[in-house]
Design a protein around this nucleic acid. Structure first.
Length: 480
RNA sequence: GCCGAGGUGGCAGAAUGGUUAAUGCGACGGACUGCAGAUCCGUUUCCUGGGGGUUCGAUUCCCUCCCUCGGCUCCA
């Protein structure tokens, strides 16, 4: 197991990670409340945690990665009522769309996506425990609240002090609460809402408690890593700490708290409630998943990332194309000839450099997941190999695989460099070959109008041409 | 007001108590091309918010001020 360091929101420092029960590691990430389509801000967070998961697995940790889905809450109920549909069905639908986007982005590291409504028995059990220990109380309408005053450590994660919370900002004064900072863990329902029976009447889970109930059930009293976007630090994660530690007495609830920075839309946070959102589905359809994933990982995960519409992703697309040019070429050769193709071995310094680079890449990522620095190293390798491009055809399969090993690292850990599998199927390749042949003949007889027409048609179909001294090569544009 | 995170070239964004502050985009020049694109090569020595302090040396550490963003019971 490789050692790595990580910033912990709770202690506000970077330190070496150590699993509670090695080699097993539990990672819990707060997922979506799918009342609307997921946007590219969500994408940043979940792509980042995907890299965390990939890296941990590569480094020999036995990871169990859980990402919850809050499939029932006030907004879902509201939105469903507006649209005249069932809230659980609405959540299901948006979640399915989210999963398709994640799949396109190469996020396949999550082991389990639990739904809040599937954990009602665990939630009720935890509420009972909290009531027994005096941390919670039942209000007149049958709701149950957590009493913040009873948990003296409240605020230790976020640094907030209860007395300094700005009263009136959004701290609703609610007659059912004993104190304004108390939060609901079981919400009495009105007829027509999805509800579950409880000793206090029909109700449904409050937001914060679903996560702790799931973690206690799935990962144990304490988890190794707990993460989300940093907008969830307060009150959500603060509430989770209070709920879990009040329930079990075990602390700290999470060994490390990981929070990823916000995606800013022109200097302002991208948020469903502000409305300045770009959906993942549409973005992937228009620019492709590769450039989007590259864009996310091209900044440190804790920095705010400024999204400039009409610029950021176009720029990322250019940069990503540059980054992958050598990798793609090697991939094409190996695909065509097989990895046992004969040829020259790698000249001496290069072989060693490739090996060293892979080690440096791991070391760089092991320093608080510095994906940007890792990408910079990969750009350096591409620059190094770009001059080898004309000689690539001369190398053996083994040599090519060795040269490509840093890119294979990028594929495994960063989820970049994967080439469109269907792009060069036999049928497609032969059709393109016919078109290219027609174009060459047109060029040969000086009929450039026809040659350019074929080029444009191919371009429209997603086929990019590269004329060079040795003839014309082509490749499928990266698809979403 | 309180709690956090930031402020780096035209833009996006790393890093570091010490020779030219990474990388990419863009721009410019060149190679290749029928042209364009793609690709390759080169150039882009004047960029670390302001002011103090510690130090032989600060962009980095400390103090202070200014600005931006996030959170303050909806948020990834």
């Amino acid at each position: 197991m490789r050692r790595f360091t990580l910033y912990d929101t709770r202690t506000r420092d970077v330190r070496v990670f150590a699993p509670i029960a090695p080699p097993r590691v539990g990672l819990y990430v707060c997922g979506l409340t799918p009342y609307a389509p997921a946007h590219i801000g969500h994408g940043r967070t979940f792509v980042f945690f995907d890299v965390v998961a990939r890296a941990l697995r590569r480094w020999g940790y036995r990871l169990f990665y859980v990402q919850n889905v809050t499939n029932l809450d006030d907004k879902l109920i509201e939105r469903a009522a507006e649209e005249g549909v069932d809230p659980l069905g609405l959540a299901e639908q948006h979640f399915a769309e989210y999963r398709r986007s994640m799949d396109a982005l190469g996020v396949r590291s999550v082991d389990y996506y639990p739904f809040a409504t599937d954990y009602v028995p665990e939630i009720l059990q935890q509420i009972h425990a909290l009531l027994d220990k005096g941390f919670a109380y039942v209000a007149d309408d049958g709701s149950v609240y957590f009493s913040v005053a009873k948990f003296s450590d409240y605020g230790k994660l976020s640094g907030q002090r209860v007395e300094s919370l700005k009263p009136g900002a959004r701290l609703e004064v609610d007659p059912r609460k004993r104190s304004p900072e108390d939060f609901v863990i079981w919400k009495a329902t009105t007829p027509g809402e999805p509800s579950w029976e409880s000793p206090w009447g029909p109700g449904r889970p409050g937001w914060h408690i679903e996560d702790t109930a799931m973690i206690l059930r799935l990962l144990g009293e304490r988890c190794d890593l707990h993460g989300a976007g940093l907008d969830l630090i307060f009150p959500h994660h603060e509430a989770e700490v209070a709920l879990a530690e009040a329930t079990t007495g075990a602390a700290p609830f999470s060994n490390f708290w990981i929070h990823s920075g916000m995606l800013l839309m022109d200097e302002e946070k991208m948020s469903k409630s502000i409305g300045n959102v770009l959906s993942l589905t549409e973005t992937i359809a228009s620019v492709g998943a590769g450039p989007l994933r590259f864009y996310y990982l091209n900044a440190h995960y804790r920095s705010p990332l400024t999204f400039l519409p009409g610029k950021s992703l176009e720029e990322a697309g250019e940069a990503y194309a540059r980054l992958t040019v050598v990798s793609d070429r090697i991939g094409e050769i190996l695909e065509r000839d097989g990895s046992d193709r004969p040829g020259a071995e790698i000249p001496d310094p290069l072989a060693e450099e490739a090996e060293d680079l892979v080690e440096r890449l791991d070391a760089t990522l092991a320093d608080d997941f510095n994906t940007r620095e890792a990408i910079a190293l990969l750009f350096g390798w591409t620059r190094r190999l770009a001059e080898e491009l004309p000689r690539l055809e001369g190398y053996s399969g083994d040599a090519l695989e060795e040269l490509a090993s840093p890119y294979r690292w990028g594929e495994e850990v960063l989820g970049l460099f994967s080439r469109p599998a269907s792009g060069a199927s036999g049928a497609v390749a032969s059709v393109v070959a016919v078109a290219l042949d027609a174009r060459s003949r047109a060029r040969a007889r000086g009929d450039y109008a026809e040659a350019d027409r074929i080029r444009d048609e191919l371009h429209g179909a997603g086929v990019e041409l590269e004329d060079d001294a040795g003839g014309t090569r082509w490749r499928a544009r990266r698809t979403p």
